[in-house]
Simulated scan of single mutants.
Amino acid sequence: MSMSRIDWDHLPETVHQAVEAHTGPVLKAETVAGGLNSQIAAVVFTSELRLFVKGMPSGHSQIRAQEREAAINPYVAPRLAPRILWRVQEAGWDLLGYEFADGRHANYAPGSPDLPRVLRLAGDLAQLDTPPASVVRNIGQRMSEFTDPDAAARWSTGRTLLHTDFAPHNVLLGEERDWLVDWAWPTVGPAWVDPVVLILRLLEAGHTPAEADAVCRALPAWQNADRAEVALFSAASARLWTSIAEQQPAAPWKTHMARMAKHWCRYWAALD
């Protein structure tokens, strides 16, 4: 569920003071329009630096996602993600302060020159060490509602760190380097899971299933994927997106994602 965005100036003064204990005086703050899962998302400027600050009320139903993001950060920053520099919990608010990532959102359209850079990030992620179970859930646990217990148990043996939300607004491309951001759903599982996630986003951006499949063939994890397991996971993903769309019918993009997930399943099944 997305949150309504508020501006920096609407936070309590005690929250401003707690942040400035880390940053020094804040000269201005610019609300960021993109993203769905934070009530505060702003670029904050001081006399010496700029930071990205995101957060939400500490009692919000989605606060666990922010806690997961804070927990995974030491395992993915600075190689793939901006570092969290501080966390402020004050006056009913929970804020994370990140080093600023100067970049633009990736373009996933067919033929986009951004696609090799997105694939490079996905490939780099697959090479990271696996965080301990205390930090991340496994994909079998996360998808157990949408598949059979045997499949969930097999997927749970995978040890690759996964992002699981390769939406284009979670990929920032800069002049000197690129970042994978918004780590609300870090997971461990088989390496081919993130390529399936990415493929659904490529379909959302206008690729055909065959085109999206071909794009991801550059990833070793996709080249080596078990076809039967991919079919099972793709079906589970379609059930997940259908459930999301049914729960939030006022969000057309979620209905579109459910439709794309089913479209992908039909394509994959027809290859056999």
Rank of each mutant, 00 (worst) to 15 (best):
M3T: 11
R5A: 11
R5L: 08
W8M: 06
E13M: 12
T14Y: 00
V19C: 14
E20V: 01
V26I: 15
K28S: 13
V43L: 05
F45N: 11
T46I: 08
S47L: 11
F52S: 06
P57A: 08
H60R: 06
R68E: 11
A70C: 09
Y75G: 07
V76T: 07
R79C: 01
A81C: 13
A81W: 03
V88N: 01
Y98D: 06
A101C: 03
G103P: 01
R104M: 03
A106Y: 00
A106L: 05
Y108L: 09
S112L: 05
S112F: 04
P113V: 01
L115G: 01
L115S: 03
A122R: 06
G123P: 01
G123I: 00
D124C: 08
L128P: 12
D129G: 15
P132Q: 12
P132V: 00
F146K: 10
P149F: 09
T164C: 13
L172K: 05
E176T: 11
A191W: 04
W192I: 03
W192E: 14
V197L: 09
L202Y: 08
A205C: 05
A214F: 00
Q223F: 03
N224S: 14
R227T: 10
L232Y: 00
A235H: 12
P252G: 02
T255G: 14
M260F: 05
K262A: 13
R266V: 12
Y267N: 06
Y267L: 12
Y267F: 15
